[in-house]
Design a protein around this nucleic acid. Sequence first.
DNA 1: GAGTGGTCTAGACCACGGC
DNA 2: CCGTGGTCTAGACCACTCG
Lengths: 255, 255
Amino acid sequence: MSSVLPSPEPAGGPAAVAPSFSPLYQQIKALITRSLQGGEWKPGEPIPSETELAQRFKVSQGTVRKAIDELATENLLVRRQGKGTFVATHAEEKVQFRFLRLIPDEGEAGNMPRRFLDCRRLRAPADVAKALEIKSGEPVVQVRRLLYFRDRPVVLDDIWLVGAQFKGLTAERLSELRAPLYRLFESEFGVRMIRAEEKIRAVAASGASAQLLEVPEGAPLLSVERLSYTYGNRPVEWRRGLYDTTTHFYRNELN
Amino acid sequence: MSSVLPSPEPAGGPAAVAPSFSPLYQQIKALITRSLQGGEWKPGEPIPSETELAQRFKVSQGTVRKAIDELATENLLVRRQGKGTFVATHAEEKVQFRFLRLIPDEGEAGNMPRRFLDCRRLRAPADVAKALEIKSGEPVVQVRRLLYFRDRPVVLDDIWLVGAQFKGLTAERLSELRAPLYRLFESEFGVRMIRAEEKIRAVAASGASAQLLEVPEGAPLLSVERLSYTYGNRPVEWRRGLYDTTTHFYRNELN
DNA sequence: GAGTGGTCTAGACCACGGC
DNA sequence: CCGTGGTCTAGACCACTCG
């Protein structure tokens, strides 16, 4: 009942006013998050049962439950009745394309074949550095690729990754890759994408983009800038996608 | 404990396989939803306290609580500690523009002045009828309007409403309107928008749209088709917005 | 059958808002 | 001060999964 636990601050960064009071389950939530971040339980693995965690943290099972509830709605954990609670992973069919909202007008939203254009290590330009919250000039990895639908290019992605976290990422590594990118990031580099923010605009296809996407110059394209965050609200990927929306649309739900 | 309550189905439409078991709190949730739908409690008003509802439904307070929790996360109810639980309403500054995701590159996302172009009653074209799940030819109301930012047109909206639910909606009524549209819909027609789905594309400005938005013909515009639902998952509004995204962007969060 | 998460209860106490 | 929602507990039972 008393606050035996460290870090009385609730998750989500420093608030405008210190809350001066933090519910127990928020503290538990922070502790579990820390274990996830520290890799005590790996993606796909089960975490200890609710009763076990309750004993470890010296709180009731209901309190642990509420903490896990929130982490589950934030997609950090996945509950499976009768089996246990598991660390969320990109290595699952169902959540494979959690962040790709592009749907074809006709047909299924299945896997899209892809072609990598380049993969280079370089120093971060000012705008990229600012988005990724690193210093201008620090190392980054740039990846460019195309996604196809029925043999037609539909998406041109320009991806920038924080260099420090993606040491061994090379063009060779990508060319032999069959899994989704985020799966690779998770399994090879221990970087799990938690959430993302997107800024969407309509733009006119420039010469290079038009050629790659096989559309006339000046054709309207959807520009989707995405900033992806990992544990601890740290941005690790900034990408800009150009979508040809003549046969696809971007789907969004408002609640 | 025993299922004294009617309608054992959980909310959310017919499932692929009948659940054959419905938690009590889901049944309570359905009952509360029905009261909301039936207008027992009006938008902005408080609903009975948790203990009171617990007595009425002959369940424990915790069970009512869980039902209300879900309705609150679905934005049907709003909890206010120390005061009570209230029916959500569009008549609040904070939730005023819940569905408008357009953000200016610079400056605040404040209110956008607007100008109504027309408001007509007519028979639903096939595509509109299909989206609104009514018969082709049934009455609908069409509203067209412009939204401005710093004296420049930014959004051109083409709105279609199910005629049966918006009987007294006229151009005069709109011209003297100062509140947001959804506020009017709620207070005058008893239609509250609960959730919406959007399909987003990049399109080229056609002659008429280009003129109204004061952009060159062929300029890239964001096309945002929105289908809005009210209680019971019934679609009541279909709109198509054309956004000029040279000084604004569409913001989205992925979780 | 044993172990997991899921539901439900009853009761205690805390934080907040308003009279 | 009281009534509201918010937290926490302890214990019971149910539904699901797997050996």
